[in-house]
């Protein structure tokens, strides 16, 4: 790991000022993506701004009809939160599937979303549930937030402060893990919302998380896995690597969407 200067702001405003003042500064919260890539010297930020000591940035609460999760809430906190379990149990389950127990004790939702790893779990939930990413500057809709591999709408001095999830009628997340890395080879989050149905896929797209509108249209008419029969997912734009071909991933998207719809219906 290369040398860096370490900063520990007490507020989001101080953190943002540090980002403005120090070019190429990086934010750190749990550090479970950033520290490994710094160790591999794939990243060498000259300044690290530690968000983990900012009070109130990890709050989990209901605000009106939205579940609001603070940016530095750890995966284990989301997984075990009674508030999340009550409002969107699929989201609690998703958080409990990230990494391993020790990783879940450190990794944060804000960090996962800011990094936008194409195999990360949270992006699928954010896109399917139609969540809003709240930053120190503005509110970003999920559709405009994700911009491809490891790429987001965040500006250099912008900090995610919380994520607002509208509560769906039903939802489920099904993850097919790579047997070695345990990352999602494909993960599908299905949400039946008051006005529509959304199906978001992680792990498979060569451009990151995406929606399967053909499935969404069919499921909007009737929320049953049976309506998906005969609708194929194209392998175009899907990843092909030693873990699985694009065709295999396309097939998995169909299988996992069916399972997710069944799981969502079983929660009644």
């Amino acid at each position: 790991m290369y040398e860096f200067k370490y900063h520990r702001p007490g507020t989001v405003r101080q953190a943002a000022n540090l980002l403005v003042k120090n070019e190429d500064a990086k934010l750190i919260a749990g550090g479970h993506t950033l520290v490994p890539v710094m160790k591999q010297r794939l990243a060498s930020p000259p300044h690290l701004v530690d968000l983990s000591h900012i009070e109130g940035l990890d709050t989990i609460e209901m605000k009106g009809r939205s579940l609001v999760i603070g940016a530095t809430a750890k995966h284990a906190e989301v997984a075990n939160s009674a508030v999340v379990g009550e409002a969107i149990p699929a989201l609690a389950e998703l958080a409990g599937l990230i990494g391993d127990p020790a990783v879940r004790h450190r990794g944060t939702i804000g960090g996962s979303l800011a990094n936008n790893d194409p195999t990360a779990d949270y992006p699928a939930a954010v896109l399917a549930l139609g969540a809003t990413i709240v930053t120190n500057k503005r509110r970003l809709k999920a559709e405009e937030y994700f911009q491809g591999l490891f790429s987001t709408a965040l500006e250099a001095d912008e900090i995610i402060t919380k994520v607002m999830f509208p509560v769906p009628k039903k939802a489920a997340y099904v993850k097919f893990r790579n047997q070695a890395s345990r990352y999602a080879l494909v993960g599908v989050f299905v949400a039946k919302r008051p006005s529509d149905v959304r199906v978001a896929v992680t792990g498979a797209g060569s451009d990151g998380v995406f929606r399967v509108t053909a499935f969404e249209d069919a499921l909007k008419k009737r929320f049953s896995h049976k309506v998906l029969d005969g609708i194929a997912v194209s392998a175009d734009g899907l990843n092909s690597d030693l873990h699985g071909s694009a065709e295999y991933r396309a097939h998995l998207i169909g299988v996992l969407t069916r399972r997710a719809v069944e799981a969502a219906n079983a929660k009644d």
Binding site: G31, A102, H105
Partner: peptide, 29 residues
């Protein structure tokens, strides 16, 4: 040394964490 094997697990505030993926400065306090 890549947060996978867990040989480095310690408890931070009573929770298991991988100490190879945690900066000492972040354990301050």
């Amino acid at each position: 040394d890549t947060s996978q094997c867990g040989a480095c697990v310690v408890h931070l505030d009573g929770r298991a964490v991988k100490s190879c993926t945690t900066l000492a400065v972040m354990a301050d306090g």
